[in-house]
Design a binder for these strands. Sequence first.
DNA 1: CAAAGATATTACAATTTCATAATATTCTTA
DNA 2: TAAGAATATTATGAAATTGTAATATCTTTG
Lengths: 97, 97
Amino acid sequence: MNLEKMQGKCGQVSSMMKAIAHPQRLMILCHLSEGEKNVGEILALCEISQSQLSQFLNRMQREKLLKVRKDGQFAYYSIADKNLHKLIQSMQKIFCE
Amino acid sequence: MNLEKMQGKCGQVSSMMKAIAHPQRLMILCHLSEGEKNVGEILALCEISQSQLSQFLNRMQREKLLKVRKDGQFAYYSIADKNLHKLIQSMQKIFCE
DNA sequence: CAAAGATATTACAATTTCATAATATTCTTA
DNA sequence: TAAGAATATTATGAAATTGTAATATCTTTG
């Protein structure tokens, strides 16, 4: 791969990495790597305020990293980006085994 | 793994991820994943000023992600953290193949 | 020793991110 | 339809990050 193409890749990938570069966002992603969860469930698993959780979920959704499925009053979030999912799994292997 | 331990891990790992969450720092790390390089060589490969490169290298060294070997007037940097190295390689597989 | 090259340090304004509080919206159910 | 639960939005100050300029240090070589 040439330098210019590599610059482009690094730009894309590093901006995805910003999502992971926060303790609670990483926590959210690790939990979602097991499957979709609604906001209340995630809230119970992470040490974070409801407002911030909602903001983080919204942000990662705008960045196409997450997707949401509304069911009545509940909102179920899951990982939308296949590569992000692979990366989280790799990270779990590297850092948690 | 219990939640508390998971919080700890996510804290550690996300702070390592901050290094990767920047286009030029990721570029640096990708080049260093092939082996040690001196500052001038890295400078030629990345679109970054000399000052900023030096600051980034110093920062990642303080965080124990990189190590440096001085040889005369040259400073050779390489990846010091084994897990970071594994992660960069995983990322290259996921995003660059 | 003086000059030039390689690298490091310091300082600072601009921007971005973070955390929190307050409030709003939407859906369910009594 | 009023109350309550689940989720989203907005606003804001504090803190961290970024990029750049200027300067310093260390090393080699003429």
